[in-house]
Design a protein around this nucleic acid. Structure first.
Lengths: 193, 193
DNA sequence: TATTTCTCTTAATATACATTAAGTTTTCGT
DNA sequence: ACGAAAACTTAATGTATATTAAGAGAAATA
């Protein structure tokens, strides 16, 4: 069972004792999913946190026209959650699915809470990565109102150079907030110039 | 010195011992500022966390045309920070100023970190409010790509009923991501119908 | 390998919102 | 209380991006 990526990610911030690590490992669940398979559907309660160990997941919302809007990509080493549903217990607004065959670890909410109270170092880790995520969302919000579509695309390429190579263009379009048609046009008219 | 609002906010989530509370109080700094006064300027390092005790602060970014875009309002009882600058030490992209005469408490970064390591309950509190903030930003991002300007306005009114009464309309416009002219037109043509 | 199902492209038309500008009303600082 | 500054309104014009549609290319599944 490959929890090494998770342990390594935690070890960047805190040093768990062997028994703390064993306790952590004891509450992990392992899953494999195929491309396009959903692990969270709008309306469900998101009662676990999910850590991707291989492949790539994505979270997205669907608008009233049925168009999908990608909120996040989670390649190996990333967490992905509908945080409002997780913290408040409300139905999720997000869907989470696999964009390629993937493997992930999840921790049920009750275990996650107990980990945090019984291992202060784990809670420290979570506070820090929470702050990092918050920083990311704050600046994404600013970018979205401040930059043009082309600038947001350039930004995405800089921030996620590995993703840009593997992702279908329409998913990148959805993430940066334009239609696939417009992104296509934008990229091709630039090259010609 | 009015730290009651802060202590009450923390007490909603954790129960500090008297000596923990004393230690916390010992690192608090108190400030008053006038309307329009800046407490963080783009380019500065945001090396403190700020908790508003009266009045209202706001964070905003300025685009290349000089237009301001409001990221957050912080009335009494709210925290406000450029989280990327705070966590990474990079120069801030955000400005923070007072939209009315205000009072706030701040905690320098070094003290904030020490509070978190020495008082696990304080770190628990921060993890939880961090999760809440993350939930808010995730859904704001979704709302921004999913809803029309009118729907975003309606959303804002629901979420911040107290703010909508006191804020100048142009700041609401900036928060929901439209020009003041467009918001004005939008609101007036609705009423006529 | 064939066939279906996505993905990308191009282009015409449409629209939500921005920009500019000028006038009016409200608020603020002295 | 007064003058200056800020906030709001209206309207004409402009633009970035959406929508629709249809064909070509690529990739997934059987």
């Amino acid at each position: 069972m490959d929890q090494n990526l998770l342990l390594a990610g935690i070890a960047k911030y805190v040093n768990l004792d062997p028994e703390e690590q064993d306790y952590l490992i004891s509450v992990l669940h392992y899953k494999k999913i195929k491309r396009k398979q959903l692990i969270l559907e709008e309306g469900d309660i998101n009662n676990k946190v999910t850590f991707v160990t291989s492949g790539c997941l994505r979270s997205y919302a669907v608008d009233k026209n049925g168009t999908e809007h990608v909120l996040q990509f989670a390649p190996a080493g990333w967490w992905i959650t509908d945080m409002r549903s997780f913290t408040t217990g409300q139905p999720a607004r997000l869907n989470i699915d696999a964009i390629e065959d993937s493997e992930y670890i999840y921790i049920p909410k009750a275990d996650f809470e107990e980990l945090n109270t019984r291992i202060p170092k784990f809670e420290h880790y979570n506070r820090i990565i929470g702050q990092n995520a918050l920083a990311t969302y704050q600046h994404r919000q600013i970018d979205n109102v401040t930059l043009s579509a082309m600038e947001r695309y350039a930004n995405f390429c800089q921030l996620y150079p590995s993703l840009i190579k593997t992702l279908p263009q329409k998913l990148v379009a959805s993430y940066i907030g334009v239609t696939p048609e417009f992104l296509s046009k934008m990229l091709n008219t630039i090259i010609v110039k």
